[in-house]
Design a protein around this nucleic acid. Structure first.
Length: 290
DNA sequence: CGGATTTGACCTGCGC
DNA sequence: GCGCAGGTCAAATCCG
């Protein structure tokens, strides 16, 4: 629709309407009185000093202007309703955002920091996909670690490395890293305890010692299946080139991010959003701009 | 030079 | 008590 032409047409009509009013008849308050006045055309046209034909033409024009005004008012009301509706939707989205933040807090505080368990007994396992030729036992999980020992164990030809968290002097968290017997390209990291400080990489909340998936009960033979799960679940991580192969261990922020991402990938969620948006835009394009 | 890593020695728990 | 395996310590070494 060419809104410019509509605007021009409307302007002309409004000008005409104003000219008509300036002649002594304020028809803006007439509202349907045109017909009655038409019946009195025999005498009224004399009062305003115009011919009967001119009066009839003006009355007709006035009727058209009234109809136009009603259409415009209807459009205005519809637009106003839509605006109120959209405002409500935005308000509802803010509620959803608020609940989402609470959910994130829940994930962080309840899943990763269960207060009923002692820090010492809390252990978790994380898996890191690395180059099989890479002999280092260093994994990047967002924390600072100091290696304090290395041992060759009986059940695994690959040595086991021992690390302590070095970000905070009093942090009790330790981790052991060893190459998987089944898959040499897989590093198995066992974490013990909880960090008593914020994550060096993110920092807003106390960071958990545990990975998103805590497969402490997973046997080595299930590593591949677990890795597949991890790969599927975190198929779209935050782009960090150096960490692209280290999918097994992710701070909870990534997990929450993935959950939020899943929500927004939900067709119902996006369809509702798209419907609301397109509805508003269509409504706006249908209504003459003014 | 200071922090991180390496590595052999030492400690501890457990089974026999 | 002894041996074994896992875990830790700490001096030596490395590295930025």
């Amino acid at each position: 629709m060419d809104t410019t032409r509509v605007d021009t047409s409307l302007d002309l009509r409004i000008n005409s309407f104003q000219n008509f009013s300036s002649n002594g008849m304020d028809l803006r308050t007439d509202r349907g009185g045109v017909a009655e006045k038409s019946r009195e055309v025999g005498t009224l046209h004399r009062d305003i000093g115009v011919s009967a034909e001119e009066f009839t033409r003006m009355s007709s024009e006035n009727k058209k202007l009234t109809e136009t005004l009603n259409v415009v008012l209807h459009g205005y009301n519809a637009l106003q309703s839509r605006l109120i509706s959209l405002a409500k939707e935005i308000s509802a989205n803010e509620v959803v955002e608020s609940r989402k933040r609470k959910f994130e807090d829940y994930i962080d505080l309840e899943l990763w920091r269960r207060p009923t368990e002692s820090a010492k007994s809390r252990t978790s396992v994380a898996y890191f996909q690395v180059d099989a030729a890479d002999t280092s036992l260093v994994v990047k999980d967002g924390y600072q670690w100091r290696k304090y020992g290395q041992k060759v164990t009986r059940d695994n030809p690959s040595p086991r490395a021992y690390f302590k968290c070095s970000f905070a002097p009093s942090c009790p968290v330790k981790k052991k890293v060893q190459r998987s017997v089944d898959d040499p390209s897989l590093l198995v990291a066992t974490y013990e305890g909880d960090h008593n400080h914020r994550s060096p990489s993110s920092g807003a909340k106390p960071a958990p010692a545990s990975p998103p998936i805590s497969p402490s009960s997973v046997k080595p033979s299930n590593h591949t299946a677990l890795l597949d799960l991890v790969r599927r679940g975190f198929s779209n991580p935050v782009k960090k080139p150096k960490q692209e192969t280290e999918l097994g261990m992710m701070p909870p922020q990534f997990l929450v991010q993935e959950m939020v991402s899943s929500l927004t990938r939900d067709p119902n969620f996006t369809a509702s959003l798209a419907e609301a948006m397109s509805g508003a835009m269509l409504e706006r394009s249908r209504t003459p701009s003014w």
